[in-house]
């Protein structure tokens, strides 16, 4: 891992960031994750990407300076690296891999009508990462990631989904020192659809914060969000999910479900599902649950001769498996088993 040469205060954009740290809105958005603690782990290393997969494309320097200013960390993250660009104009699988520790930004364009998969792999850990994705009309993108590194990090997925386009995000993570994943997904063209599945298993002492904002900017879009998380002792899991329906975005259909299990004393779960709605002809709902394993189910399994430990593991696995799919499914579930394996009570 690279040396932490300087603190975040010497990074470009640090002054602008420092000015915002005490803003009410920023503090509210970082209520459950200590922003300064995360910042203090930042160094000035630029990260790096490489591209693999079957799809035909190149990573090139990006001409665009994308707007990340509404995320305070975007103020320094975007300046600390040279953004890369990936234009996907043919269908296929695209795999982006981190090759160096640091800050990095990738701007992805999926051209009209193209159906592709984007897989994020992390051979090297990273500090901060911004992925901007634009889906043009009729494009389909299935986006998958599994983050098993445990260092402190910040990750932003900023997506705009065009007309008739479909975006699917599969986010699987194990948490770390101070990990924050922001997602801002805009349904920007009529009949755009979003499917977002997240699963997260935190071993003792881990921290994971998934903060999500889904904006229905035009009528007739649909979004479905499911986030499941389990937390071991002294782990802290946070899920903030806002569905925002702008005026005139009629016939929006949005649903968010956020379910959490605390597996031990001293575990902590924070959930904040939000609806912000300015149109009347919509179907929006959210649900959140926080609790422990279903005692009845546990008893049922044990009454059939399954040992308690195994019964718990089975139930935790089943709980997480509800939102786990795609290429990483097997790997993710195995990693989750490992994460919750330790101090089961």
């Amino acid at each position: 891992m690279a040396d932490a040469m300087s603190t975040w205060e010497s990074l470009p954009g640090a002054d602008a960031l420092a000015a915002r740290l005490d803003e009410g809105r920023v503090r509210e958005a970082w209520k459950y994750t200590p922003l300064r603690r995360l910042l203090n782990t930042f160094s000035s290393e630029p990260g790096g990407w490489e591209l693999a997969g079957t799809g035909e494309a190149q990573l090139t320097p990006s001409p665009d300076q994308t707007d990340s200013a509404s995320f305070p960390l975007g103020l320094i993250s975007a300046q600390a690296c040279s953004p890369r660009q990936l234009v996907i104009s043919t269908s296929g699988d695209y795999e982006v891999r981190t090759i160096a520790f640091g800050h990095q930004q990738l701007n992805v364009f999926v051209e009209a009508g193209v159906h592709a998969r984007l897989i994020e792999r992390y051979p090297s850990p990273f500090q901060s990462q911004i992925i901007n994705i634009t889906l043009e009309a009729g494009a389909h993108l299935s986006h998958e990631r599994l983050c098993t590194h445990s260092n402190s990090l910040w990750h932003l997925t900023d997506v705009s989904i065009g007309k008739d386009a479909h975006y699917q995000l599969m986010h699987y993570a194990l948490g770390g020192d101070t990990q924050r994943f922001d997602c801002r997904i805009k349904l920007a063209g009529a009949h755009a659809t979003l499917l977002f599945d997240s699963a997260c298993a935190l071993a003792s002492g881990r921290h994971h914060d998934l903060t999500l904002e889904v904006v229905h900017e035009v009528p007739d879009c649909q979004s479905t969000i499911r986030a499941h998380a389990v937390a071991q002792a002294k782990a802290k899991s946070t899920c903030i999910g806002r569905i925002h329906i702008v005026p005139d975005a009629q016939r929006s259909n949005a649903n968010l479900s956020c379910r959490n299990l605390l597996l031990a004393d001293n575990a902590e779960v924070n959930a904040k599902p939000e609806l912000e709605i300015y149109a009347d002809d919509v179907r929006c709902a959210h649900g959140a649950t926080v609790g422990r394993l279903d005692e009845d189910a546990l008893f049922y399994l044990r009454s059939r001769g399954i040992g308690e430990r195994q019964a718990r593991q089975t139930l935790v696995r089943a709980f997480l498996a509800q939102t786990v799919k795609g290429d990483f499914a097997t790997e993710a579930l195995a990693a989750f088993d490992e994460a919750v394996h330790d101090t089961q009570n």
């Binding site: 605390l262 902590e268 924070n270 926080v290």
Partner: peptide, 27 residues
């Protein structure tokens, strides 16, 4: 009507595994 706003901002914070919280919201 379509000129008004309806918002739901629930905060759920749990530090005990044996507690159960269930939250549902509809529009």
């Amino acid at each position: 009507g379509d000129e008004c706003g309806a918002h739901t901002f629930p905060y759920i914070e749990s530090k005990t595994p044996s507690a159960t919280v269930e939250h549902e919201a509809t529009t």
